[in-house]
């Protein structure tokens, strides 16, 4: 049970951990845009160096970041195969021509660049968001960034509050589930053997107390919020008002500069470029 961690926040002291979360969200979005702007080998090299730079700056263990790529390995493998087998190129670039398969050099290049793109996509979002930002900070930042929708009458604050509460409750409920399971195990409940039907039935003594406690907690929280005169977002101020500092602008402009660099490199006709 303890292995279920929500998000994968990794506590550390690093320039990226300290960035303003709103800026981090924008930076992450720009980074994703950058990965899709890349066209030729040079711009991909620049992208890769940006990804490496951000890992170094974030002081995350490299193994942790690498593990983040694991869930999409299958997707990477499938796209690579499709690229290798279905890309067509100049007739003089045929590498393998056997039975119905024709592999062009372009296909291999495309596959390699795609791998770089995918890996950078995961590394960028995880380094800027999941590993260095707590989910609660993230919902706060999203509330701030979505302010234009407020003007249109969308209850942005309420959605953000619901999200925050939901996120806050997940670890609590995981904890609670763990406790209840232990308590029932102490009375001889068996969750790990028997047929599927038996196992499902064995969960009843866990689910019922869990639901009861979830409703109880929800009610307690609602009462506690009302006691403190919570009435939604209208005129509500923050305990921690976030300020954007110079270093946040540096990060933002840094990424924009990289983006411009990528666009410039794309126009140079050097090396291979994705069609």
């Amino acid at each position: 049970m303890n292995s279920i961690s929500l998000g994968q926040y990794y506590p550390a002291e690093s320039p990226i951990h300290r960035l303003d979360v709103r800026i981090k969200v924008v930076v992450a979005i720009l980074f994703v845009v950058c990965t899709f702007l890349c066209k030729n080998v040079l711009s991909f090299a620049l992208l890769l160096s940006l990804a490496l730079l951000s890992i170094i700056l974030s002081r995350l263990p490299i193994g942790l970041v690498a593990r983040g790529v694991r869930p999409i390995l299958i997707i990477i493998a499938i796209t690579s195969l499709i690229n290798i087998f279905f890309s067509t190129g100049a007739p003089e670039n045929i590498v393998v021509d056997w039975w119905i398969f024709t592999i062009y050099r372009e296909g291999i290049y495309n596959a390699l660049l795609m791998i770089v793109r995918f890996v950078c996509l995961i590394v960028g979002t995880s380094v800027f968001l999941t590993y260095t930002t707590t989910p609660i900070e993230l919902t706060d930042a999203i509330e701030d960034l979505l302010w234009p929708l407020k003007k249109l009458g969308v209850p942005v604050h309420d959605f953000a509050m619901m999200m925050t509460i939901a996120l806050r409750f997940i670890p609590l409920l995981v904890d609670e589930t763990d406790k209840i399971m232990t308590a029932q195990k102490a009375r001889g409940a068996d969750f790990s053997s028997g047929s599927l039907a038996q196992r499902a039935k064995a969960l009843v003594p866990v689910l019922i107390p869990l639901f009861v406690s979830a409703f109880r907690r929800a009610e307690e929280l609602a009462v506690a919020m009302e006691c403190r005169c919570y009435h939604g977002g209208e005129g509500r101020t923050r305990m921690n008002v976030r300020h954007v500092h110079a270093k946040d602008f540096v990060a933002l402009f840094g990424v924009i500069l990289f983006g411009v660099g990528i666009v410039v490199l794309n126009t140079l006709n050097i090396g291979y470029s994705i069609s």
Binding site: E176, K179, I180, T182, A183, Q184, A186, R187, G188, A189, D190, V204, P205, I208, P209, V212, S213
Partner: peptide, 23 residues
């Protein structure tokens, strides 16, 4: 365990006390 009342789940107290012996 601590706060054991939160683990009661049966329809009646009798059946809940019987959970352990039944197992």
């Amino acid at each position: 365990m601590q706060y054991p009342e939160y683990q009661l789940f049966e329809e009646t107290i009798r059946r809940d006390i019987a959970f352990g012996p039944r197992n």
